[in-house]
Amino acid sequence: MDGGWIDVHHHSYHPPLITELRRRGVTHMAPGVPLPEWTVTDSLRVMDANGVQAAILSILLPDAAFDEGAASLVRQANEWSADLVRSFPGRFGALAVLPLPDVEATLAEIDHAFDVLGLDGVVMSASLADGRYLGDPAFAAVFDELNRRGAVVFVHPNPAYRCDCAGGPGFTAKVPPPLVDFVMDTTRAVADLLFGGTLGRCHDIKFILAHAGGTVPFLAWRLELAATWVLPEAGEVDVAAELRRLYYETAQAASPATLACLREVTAGENILFGTDFPFMKDAVVSATLGHLAGIADLDFRGNILALFPRLADRLEKAGLGREVADVARL
């Protein structure tokens, strides 16, 4: 691969952010997942050890972080991310976190993130603390603005999510939410965006789905069949076309079986390299690359550069980029 890998799913948790979360009484991202001890040195170390040239940084905030002063905390987190990009322009891009469900504050943060900080897109939790999903009509103005900007939107499971539709007493002790419930959170969000009309209305948004879309690739035909039995009004939705234009990344989803399923749903240019560092440690980063390194017909680097022109420009200026001829297709 010319120029090195680019990781689209790479989290950053600045030490002052962790300090503030602990002050608010937040100790875990999710059940069994404590707040990470992260520094930029950690990211650069694992990147250098694995031939990863650059990473798109993102922050997921636990629901409890929104109990007080969410907008100010979000603004500070995005300022820290922008500082990292300025300090390491050839190594990082960054996505803005948003203070949903506060629509007014979210629209203001979108303006600040793109127009002032120059960030590369946004990251959004698939579900919110109050149980709503991203396709809720209350969030239409947010997606319309992101659509107007042709933004990249990275959809990631809510760290606090646990499915209450399955599993009896003691289930989560045996099967912690990150193992199964997280991928269902993403799947539910995609179905909500799909059948609620957001995907069809917002064709200029580039949606990236964490963990290869959860179970979306496996359930694709089932979703296509919705109009034939339980959702007659879905007959006007071109489910296959909408799922095909989404982007899917490989964190915890790089096995040959998962990739084979994914290739049936989308085109090769919509498959992206991601690791989920630091929650997935060095050995998993290396194993992910081990699965992907021999796949000659997928241009993981070019796919990401086409989505993130600001990062591509920074790499080009540093003499580290390469021409991306197909940006116009987006």
Rank of each mutant, 00 (worst) to 15 (best):
204 D>V: 09
241 A>Y: 10
244 R>W: 03
110 I>F: 00
244 R>E: 03
160 A>Q: 10
275 T>L: 00
189 A>Q: 11
123 V>D: 04
214 G>H: 11
206 K>V: 07
204 D>H: 14
118 G>E: 13
140 A>P: 08
177 P>V: 02
235 G>K: 13
149 R>E: 14
280 M>F: 00
113 A>G: 11
57 L>W: 09
11 H>E: 14
12 S>Q: 08
323 E>T: 12
72 S>C: 02
130 D>I: 12
293 A>G: 06
141 A>Q: 14
81 S>Y: 11
88 F>L: 09
72 S>E: 15
287 A>Y: 06
55 A>K: 09
30 A>K: 13
204 D>Q: 15
219 L>E: 13
29 M>K: 06
230 V>I: 07
71 A>E: 15
40 V>F: 06
275 T>Q: 04
170 G>T: 08
75 R>H: 12
326 D>V: 07
275 T>P: 02
102 D>I: 06
319 G>Q: 12
51 G>E: 15
115 D>V: 04
94 A>M: 11
4 G>S: 09
74 V>R: 13
132 R>T: 12
50 N>W: 09
176 P>T: 10
17 L>M: 08
55 A>S: 15
318 A>Q: 03
311 L>H: 09
115 D>R: 02
28 H>E: 15
220 A>F: 03
125 S>T: 13
146 L>S: 08
227 A>T: 01
298 L>Q: 09
25 G>R: 10
321 G>V: 13
309 P>W: 00
110 I>D: 04
144 D>S: 08
177 P>G: 01
193 L>T: 02
77 A>S: 01
197 G>R: 01
231 L>C: 00
70 A>F: 03
121 G>M: 07
198 T>A: 04
307 L>R: 07
290 G>N: 12
243 L>Q: 10
232 P>V: 09
247 Y>N: 03
71 A>R: 12
184 M>R: 15
158 N>H: 04
148 R>H: 11
156 H>R: 10
223 L>V: 02
327 V>S: 07
179 L>T: 02
329 R>H: 05
109 E>G: 00
55 A>T: 10
198 T>S: 02
313 D>M: 06
201 R>K: 05
164 D>Y: 01
197 G>A: 06
153 V>A: 00
11 H>Q: 14
224 E>M: 06
324 V>P: 05
60 L>W: 01
283 A>L: 10
132 R>A: 04
71 A>K: 12
160 A>N: 15
254 A>N: 12
313 D>K: 10
171 F>P: 04
138 A>Y: 02
230 V>Y: 05
92 F>Q: 15
161 Y>I: 02
24 R>K: 12
192 D>A: 11
226 A>D: 11
38 W>L: 04
138 A>D: 12
320 L>G: 01
